[in-house]
Amino acid sequence: MTKTPLLPAALCLLLPLAAQAQPAQGADTGIGGEIHRELADARKEMRVEMAKAKQDLDTGNLQLDRDSLHFGMDGDRKARTATANLARAEITPAGDFLIDGNAQPIDARQRRELLAYRGLVVEITKAGIDIGQRGAEAALTAVDGSWIGLMFGAMTGSLERRIERTVRQEVEPAVRGICRLLPRVMESQQRLSASLPQFRPYATLERDDIDDCEDGVRREFATR
């Protein structure tokens, strides 16, 4: 899981909406209602997509080589290096451990550990989905108003500042919560590495990654 700038990403989600919300020349006073309906549709579509993403996490295989947990620029480089030449590895919802589609021999204890690890990573990923949805909802709420206010805010920059402030209030505590789950993930990786040698190459989370997560949150939001 690589770190991405949260506020710019949330703002990018709004660009298509802002384009749709601009009043056409000669539009009547119903433009405010049209903007409101467009934003309501955007909320509905986003919620459906987020629910589908969560369902896919529960029912699909967890791909380890694509879900390395690293944060910051150094973590991104480490993740790419660590997983560049690894075979595709997955943990199924039943707790099977697959490498290149082939089930590895595991005992009941290893299956429990695999399921525990899968559960932690899915929990973190779902939390990330919730953060994205919460931030986007907050940004849409900040935008949802009269079209005159929307245009004035966009021209003066106050709209962007209001969106950033609102998204920050919603997102920062939740991101810190994800950082605080990472020690449990690292411990789970270490247990699996000790009991299941085939898993060892995929146990790439380190103490530095956990520190980078907290530091990255501080840096990201200190400038907002």
Rank of each mutant, 00 (worst) to 15 (best):
D144A: 12
M186W: 02
A84E: 00
A27Y: 11
D28K: 10
I148G: 00
E113A: 15
G149S: 15
Q22W: 07
D209V: 01
L98H: 08
H70D: 00
T141R: 10
Q104E: 15
G32W: 02
G177A: 05
R66K: 09
T125G: 04
G30C: 11
A139N: 12
L181Y: 04
L62P: 05
Q25P: 09
G101Q: 08
Q104G: 10
T92I: 06
N85A: 09
G60V: 14
E49F: 02
L64N: 01
E45C: 08
G145A: 08
D107A: 04
R47Q: 13
A174P: 06
D96C: 05
I35V: 14
R112G: 06
R77T: 01
F71T: 05
G72A: 11
V48L: 11
L140Q: 15
G95T: 03
R109I: 13
R161N: 12
R77V: 03
P197S: 12
A51G: 00
E113C: 05
I124S: 07
D107V: 04
I99R: 14
K126V: 14
A94E: 10
L181H: 12
Q63Y: 00
C213Y: 01
P16T: 07
H36A: 13
C213A: 03
Y202I: 06
E123N: 13
A19N: 08
P173K: 07
D212I: 00
D58L: 14
P173G: 07
A154M: 15
R77C: 00
A127L: 12
A42V: 08
F71S: 06
G177C: 04
M1G: 11
H36V: 10
E206P: 00
L205Y: 02
D76Q: 07
I106W: 04
E113P: 01
L114S: 09
Y117W: 09
A84Q: 00
N85Y: 01
G145T: 07
M1E: 08
F97K: 08
S188Y: 03
I210Y: 00
E172H: 04
N102S: 09
V121D: 00
